[in-house]
Design a protein around this nucleic acid. Structure first.
Lengths: 196, 196
DNA sequence: TAAATTAGAGAACAATTGGAGAACATTTAG
DNA sequence: CTAAATGTTCTCCAATTGTTCTCTAATTTA
């Protein structure tokens, strides 16, 4: 896969995620600054022949992703589970932990956390949290929220009518309550990781 | 392997980790201050013949790492840092978080944690910890230890002469002290992750 | 000192990658 | 049905890269 093919594959993948529909040759070309539909078509064909894409039917927007590109790679061997004072329990069923399938996606990003406001939720200073972009969230999920278009908070959220309560996971800190219109949800925390 | 060959191999490995594509002869040359593509080519050929690299296909960027030098990679966009009540601080320098480069390796594995013995260290029930295999560890690192070839403990370790103290990160639990010969270190915790 | 080795420059050529656009076929919208 | 848009096939072309050479200079070795 050449560099440009890789770019095109990524573009198609993100386009589908965003529009729930594959782009046309022309749309791909626009994004890649390629004027010729014929040239774009050649790249798409190349990706199909390399098994990175497939075509469904003959019409427009018939490009589809292959399963491998709907999820990405496997990563680490998962060998067992630790439980208090018991022998190691081997995990046979799923012998690999697929980090990326669960955590990656075009709508994901990572934030590094500073401070201890979420310490009781096991999110420590220096940890990274993986966020799925969304502008709404359920009660009691941990969200990234922008307050007054200025400061950012990583807090558990709970709605009370026209107000939103942002609850820290730290007994030494207090909840903050804002009118709904002052709080803009940026995303919800779907994962967390730490390097020691 | 000469010194320069070693440098080139390292450069290629890091380039692939960063760009997910091998560098061209020219790019290698730029990094090594070698003007001639031909000269670079000679080094690459030498590394191939020594089994440190291989070539895939005939096109550009067809240099591949041999399994011994390989690391798979997974990259998430790292957009910023959250700090208490401050505006989002964009991270410009390194805009990607390379999960696997730091966490993966042939001597790594994952355990799923059950129980709350490490709760004060931010390791909660259901979390996954990434372990680097080793049979020795420094004081105050979190280790996976096998006790009497039977039960497994995830605890902070401290040596006291011929005894080893295994310290839980939980105020409601007590340290356990064993004679050195009863405790077999399996590895140390180098990372942790959680799926919400 | 002389020969061999190592290292780099760069020319020359082949192969691959990347792009434009014409011509025609097919699909979709109205 | 008709027209517009899209998909497909094709040729031509340019730019970049990989590869193989030869030449030169510096360093090491016999």
């Amino acid at each position: 896969m050449t560099q440009l093919e890789q770019k095109i594959l990524t573009f198609i993948s993100e386009f589908i995620a965003k529009h729930n529909q594959s782009p046309t040759m022309k749309e791909i070309g626009s994004a890649m600054s390629i004027q010729s539909r014929g040239t774009v078509h050649r790249y798409v064909q190349s990706l199909v022949s390399k098994g990175q894409l497939r075509r469904q039917g003959k019409g427009w927007r018939s490009i589809r992703l292959t399963p491998q590109n709907e999820r990405s790679l496997t990563i680490l061997p998962l060998v067992g589970a630790i439980e208090e004072g018991k022998p190691l329990q081997p995990i046979l069923e799923q012998s690999e932990l697929n980090v990326s399938a669960s955590l990656l996606g075009p709508d994901r990003f990572v934030l590094k956390v500073t401070g201890d406001s979420m310490i009781d939720a096991g999110i420590l200073d220096g940890d990274f949290v993986i966020i799925r972009k969304t502008d709404s969230a359920d009660n009691d999920t941990i969200v990234v929220a922008l307050i007054d278009d200025g400061e950012v908070a990583l807090k558990r959220m709970r709605k009370h009518g026209d107000r939103i309560e942002l609850i820290p996971a730290n007994k030494n800190r207090l909840s903050l309550i804002y009118p709904t219109e002052r709080v803009h949800i940026q995303g919800i925390v779907i994962g967390q990781l730490r390097f020691l």
